[in-house]
């Protein structure tokens, strides 16, 4: 029996995202649906979330109008589908500091936020460069950093340096520095609580966008294919993908790409009245299914 119940919760989507964003090199291969999701981990006295989405108050209209994000719903609506309120969330693991992963921190008033220190330090460094380098820092909103000031003052910001095991029981944070961003990290849930877990799940942030990043398109001759957007090194991304695959014993379905619409073909799921998908990855002892 699992220690944590795990759900991937869609809170919006882009119906026509270019495939080239998700897999480097597929520049002229059409578009795909790209769901926006959180991951909720519930068990052992904790309710944790992996990333918190974007601040719809500041940017929602612009994003909807300019970039085609549809059907955005707030955390209160999305989390209610699994019987959780945002105020119950105890930890938020921020895989990286882009506005669409960290911007909605205000919606989780009790959560302690975990961010790699390098993510902030290198962003500040990039701000000291000539404006010719502005691409490096333009996906992080200074307003989100200001919200981090409040979190720090409330004792709710945890600056993580590198890996951290058992950040809550059975859950590890692993650095993925100089990949998608300078201070990215991924989350490993050892759902049997064992150090050498036979029931590991990886939540990869934006290190991958689809299962194709893990195994390519030829089942007979798999290959790692990096994503289409990296501040750091594609080589490092590929090595981190390999590391994540090893941590789940080679069972690739356990490295979860939250943006992959194909999750529904692998795990049980349902569509809510708001036309959002709830995907159930695991159920802890005593927890009832939220998709059946």
């Amino acid at each position: 029996m699992s220690d944590y119940s795990i759900w991937v919760l869609e809170y919006g989507a882009v119906p026509t995202a270019p495939k080239g964003v998700t897999i480097h090199g597929t520049f002229n291969e059409g578009t795909i649906k790209l769901p926006y999701c959180y991951v909720v981990l519930k068990g052992r006295g904790h309710i944790a979330i992996v990333d918190v989405g974007y601040n719809n108050k500041d940017y929602g209209r612009v994003i909807a109008d300019s970039y085609g994000v549809e059907n955005w719903h707030p955390p209160a609506t999305v989390l209610a589908e699994i019987g959780v309120a945002p105020g119950q969330v105890t930890e938020a693991f921020i895989t990286h500091a882009h506005f669409d992963h960290m911007g909605n921190s205000d919606e989780f008033p009790k959560a302690k936020f975990y961010v790699q220190e390098r993510e902030l330090a290198k962003w500040m460094w990039s701000l000291s460069l000539h404006r010719r380098f502005r691409w490096l820092n333009s996906a992080t909103d200074p307003g989100d950093i200001m919200r981090m000031v409040d979190l720090a003052r409330q004792g709710r910001l945890v600056s993580v340096e590198g890996d951290r095991a058992n950040v809550i029981p059975g859950i590890d944070l692993h650095e993925a520095h100089d990949t998608h961003t300078w201070g990215s990290m991924y989350v490993n849930v050892r759902n049997d609580g064992q150090a050498a877990s036979a029931d590991s799940w990886i939540f990869a942030g934006d290190l991958i966008y689809s299962y194709a990043n893990l195994k390519g398109f030829d089942a007979a001759d798999p290959q790692i294919l990096p994503i289409g957007l990296a501040t750091g090194s594609q080589t490092t991304i590929m090595l981190k993908i390999e590391e994540m695959i090893e941590r789940v014993g080679g069972e690739m379905k356990r490295v979860i790409p939250i943006h992959d619409e194909n999750l529904k073909d692998i795990f049980p799921s349902r569509i809510t009245a708001k036309n959002l998908r709830v995907t159930e990855i695991a159920l802890a002892k005593g927890e009832s299914s939220r998709v059946r």
């Binding site: 026509t16 995202a17 270019p18 578009t31 669409d100 333009s138 996906a139 966008y209 289409g228």
Partner: peptide, 20 residues
């Protein structure tokens, strides 16, 4: 903030792409 540069918001650049 460069909304179009974020990981999930490159969509506006897909003009002319064929849905798959």
């Amino acid at each position: 903030v460069a909304l179009g540069q974020s990981c999930c918001a490159e969509h506006a650049r897909s003009a002319g792409a064929t849905p798959t």
